[in-house]
Nucleic acid binder design. Sequence first.
DNA 1: GTACAGATAAACT
DNA 2: GTTTATCTGTACA
Length: 213
Amino acid sequence: MTLARAFYDRPTLDVAADLIGKVLVHRTGEGTTAGAIVEVEAYIGESDPACHAAPGLTPRNEPLYGLPGFAYVYLNYGIHHLFNVVTEAAGRPAAVLVRALEPLDGVRLMRRRRAGDRRPGAAIPDHELCRGPGSLARAMGISLADNRADLCGPSLYVEDRGTTCSALAWSSRIGIRVGIEYQWRCYVAGCPAVSGTRAHGREPKAEGRRPVP
DNA sequence: GTACAGATAAACT
DNA sequence: GTTTATCTGTACA
C-alpha cells in the first residue's frame, strides 16, 4: 500500500525512522524497480548547516519548502543524482535523503543501468546495486526529471509491504563538513546494503539511539 | 590503508 | 568568473 501524504507531514526524524523497511518503487518505460530502504539521513530546516535550505529559499532548494510527500532530486558533484523525500508542512524546509536500498524487484534492470559504472565483466552483487545515494539513483533510474515528483502519484512512490526492521542504529551523517554534531543518519545495523562500512572506511563511530534535537 | 579524478548546477565574488 | 557541493570507482602504497 502506497504511503499517504500524511506519512510525510510529520517531524522529519519520525519520517526517517519509519521509512526504514518501506519499499521505494519506480515505474518507468524501461520497467519497474523497487527496493527496501535500509539507510536514510534527515536534513532539517534553515538552522541545519548541512541542509540545502541553510542559505534560505533559492530556486534550487524550493521543493524543500513545498508540500511534504514530493521528491527533491539534485545533481551532486556534477555527477551523481541524490534522491530526497520532502517532509513536514509547506514552509518548513526539511527532507530525508535515501542513501541505500536492498533491491527487491527489477534487479536485472538495475544491473543493466549500473553497467558501465565498473569495468566490463565485473559483476555487481545485489546488495551493492543501491548502496550509496548516487548508486541508488542510477540503479532506480532517478534523475533530475524526477525532481518535484509527487510521491503520492503513480510512478515514483514508497509503499509499506508489512516488513519490519530490527536493529535500527543512528549515527552522524556521511559526506558533509558541517552539521556533523547531529546524529541524523538512521540505518539497519549489520545490513550489507548499507553504505559507509566497507569500501571507504568512513563509518561514523557514533552509534546510538534516536537523537533528541 | 589513503589519494584523486570525474564533470555540472548553482551560489557567490 | 570562481568555488563549492548530502559521491563513487579506481589507482596506488
